[in-house]
Each structure stands twice: as C-alpha cells, then as structure tokens.
C-alpha cells in the first residue's frame, strides 16, 4: 500500500509541476513525471508474488499462479505513446523558442479571448 501512496504522491507532484512551472520544458518534464507514476502503478498492479511467466507449452499446466501479461503489454505500449507525445511537445517547444526567443509562458501569449 505504501508503494501505491508514493505513486500517487508522484502523480500529484507532476500535476503541481504542470500547474505552477512557467518554463515550457519544465511543463513537459512534469507531464513525464505524471506519466511514469501511472506506468509504475500499472506495473505494480500486474505484479503477482511468485507468479510464473505465462508461457503455455502444449498441455503442461503450470504449478504456480501465472502472471497476466496484459499490464506489461499495456505499460510498454503506453511508454511508446509517451515517447511520441514527448517528442511532439519538445518539437513544438523548440519551434516556439525559435519564434519568441524565450521559454517563458508568460511571454508567449498571442492567443486571447
């Protein structure tokens, strides 16, 4: 349970960062912290103490409880997706830096209303 609470604290740290940081890159880092807290949580939910790899060969029935591979597959997929979103965000952040000459979100405010 302690681990889940720490995961949740990590998630809240990420939200705090997204809400308070004024630097484009730091916002991206905060989002990444949130992402990784969720990945850790999903991996922990999928963990079964003493479980075996879910490889079923022929008719042999495994003795120990078998781990569900679904959370692991989901974590891997989510990591790849997070890679794509982070790459996209950083690309835009760099293009914004070239246009405005700053990473400060208070100075990037063309859109209003």
């Amino acid at each position: 349970m302690t681990l889940f609470i720490m995961c949740f604290l990590l998630f809240l740290t990420g939200i705090y960062g997204v809400l308070t940081r004024r630097n484009l890159i730091k916002v991206v880092i905060s989002l990444t912290i949130m992402e990784f807290s969720l990945f850790l949580m999903l991996a922990m939910i999928g963990y079964i103490s003493g479980g075996e790899a879910p490889i079923l060969a022929g008719t042999i029935i495994p003795a120990a409880p078998v781990v569900d591979p679904l959370p692991q597959a989901m974590v891997l997929t989510a990591i790849v997706i997070a890679l794509a979103t982070n790459a996209m965000l950083l690309t835009i952040a760099i293009r914004l830096y070239k246009k405005y000459g700053t990473f400060d979100i208070r100075e990037i405010n063309e859109l209003k209303g």
Binding site: V18, T85, L89, I92, A93, Y100, N109, E110, L111
Partner: peptide
C-alpha cells in the same frame, strides 16, 4: 508553424 499555431498546439498538447 507560425506563432499562433505553435502556441495553440502547445496548449492543446499539454
């Protein structure tokens, strides 16, 4: 890729 488009996209992405 002008100022407004990039800013909108960044906001949308966050």
């Amino acid at each position: 890729v002008e100022k407004t488009e990039l800013e909108a996209s960044y906001k949308y992405q966050v």
